[in-house]
Amino acid sequence: MKKNKLKESIMRSITQIFDLPSEVTLKLPRITTIGTIHAYIENHQGLIIFSSEELLLKVHQGHVRIKGKGFVLKMMIAQDILLEGEISGIYYEK
């Protein structure tokens, strides 16, 4: 675990020094929202729960929970998800 933390801090500083896009180098999710009607999640690592009120995704070192109403997955491919509905909140959980 310690080794992992060290690696991550090095990567983080490299990303900052060279101004690289952090979602690529750090495997972090990139979430783009359009108002409260769309959410485009890239770089997730798997869908865990999906219902019309909730979407739970596994991401690097944690989870992303999106809550709302009338959810529809407009598109789903290996790493990207396009969510449509009435989004009320996005939460990051360990």
Partner: peptide, 10 residues
């Protein structure tokens, strides 16, 4: 498995 799906509703 690299199969695309869309308009998923539960």
């Amino acid at each position: 498995h690299q199969i695309m799906s869309w308009n998923i509703i539960k």
